[in-house]
């Protein structure tokens, strides 16, 4: 009797110990998971902090301000950082960026939205499953390869057509850039067209509208916020994209309205000049300032796009 009791007690004690030890490891693992999920937040905060730390002297340090300040950025139209009297006019860089981005959006929006409409509304199911991976493959091409293609092949091709004075120009870079953002716009546009409730489409068809009327007047108008979000995200990507414009735009910081002139964009300026700059110099701080502006711009753009998508999802969820 006694013996069996002690065994039982022992077992009980063991099971308690076992359980405790087990809970401890569970506790530890949960804390590790919890902490590692903070790393994404930490990453954003650190990026914010360290980019702005190096950009701040442009606004605060009296020495740096003599050479480069907010006022000087916009009081000259010349970007000439390496000279006896360095001038940091940001206007040509900003205009250059927008020239390239506008060309890129001009080509990518019709192509990607058109393809998205075709995929979700008209394509047979088999073809549909073929188109999507193809666009994903386009997204998988590294931007340095697109830049290389624009530099070696497209530039000569466009030159032979348009006979522009400069072989590498905003148009060339913009077209190459559109290849990079087509998948971005396409995937969001296609997703939101696909999430339009079937009941809406069927109602439209039942009322006698034909397929293209349903596609354009019903599906597209319901999914419009998603398409817009895709375009916004594409814009953000286009502004920040570096290697393509660095290789294909000619990198001359000139101010003109002609899209066949060479341009220097904000992102390409950082990539081209950071390697040779003295750490802590005004030039160094200005490059970080440009980086900080890009960071803030894309942050706003992204938040906007995600807000729009969330609204759309809620709206559609309410309708089904």
């Amino acid at each position: 009797m006694e013996n069996s009791k002690t065994i039982e007690k022992k077992q009980q004690a063991e099971s308690i110990i076992f359980k405790r030890r087990f809970r401890l490891s569970e506790f530890i693992i949960e804390k590790i998971i919890f902490l590692s999920s903070f790393l994404a937040i930490l990453g954003v905060v650190l990026i914010f902090f360290f980019i702005f730390k190096e950009a701040l002297p442009v606004l605060t340090s009296p020495e740096v301000k003599k050479e480069a300040s907010l006022k000087l950025f916009f009081s000259t139209v010349i970007w000439q950082p390496v000279s006896d009297f360095p001038r940091y006019g940001l206007i040509p860089l900003i205009v250059g960026t927008f020239k390239v981005v506008i060309v890129a959006l001009f080509f990518s929006i019709p192509l990607s939205v058109g393809a998205a409409i075709y995929t979700s509304e008209f394509a047979p199911v088999r073809l549909k499953e073929f188109i999507k991976p193809i666009v994903e493959i386009l997204a998988g091409i590294p931007s340095v390869v697109l830049g290389f293609f624009a530099l070696m092949v497209m530039a000569s091709f466009f030159h032979s057509i348009f006979h522009s004075t400069m072989r590498l120009n905003a148009f060339n870079a913009g077209v190459a850039l559109s290849f990079a953002i087509i998948p971005v716009i396409y995937s969001l546009a296609e997703d939101s067209l696909n999430s339009v409730p079937r009941s809406l489409k069927e109602a439209s068809l039942a009322l006698g509208a034909n397929r293209w009327q349903t596609a354009f007047r019903v599906s597209l108008s319901v999914a419009m916020p998603g398409v817009l979000a895709g375009i916004i995200l594409g814009l953000g990507r286009a502004v920040g994209e570096t290697m393509i414009v660095l290789m294909a735009s000619g990198n001359a910081s000139m101010l003109s309205a002609n899209i066949f002139d060479s341009v220097r964009t904000m992102s390409a300026t950082i990539a081209a000049e950071l390697g040779e700059v003295v750490q802590g110099s005004a030039h160094y701080n200005v490059l970080f300032f440009i980086g900080a502006s890009l960071f803030v711009f894309t942050l706003i753009i992204n938040s906007l796009a995600h807000l729009v998508v969330r609204r759309l999802q809620r709206k559609l969820a309410g309708k089904v």
Partner: peptide, 12 residues
């Protein structure tokens, strides 16, 4: 937002 930060900013 990490997904949207330009790659050159990661370099910086």
């Amino acid at each position: 937002n990490l997904a949207g930060v330009p790659s050159i900013v990661f370099g910086l």
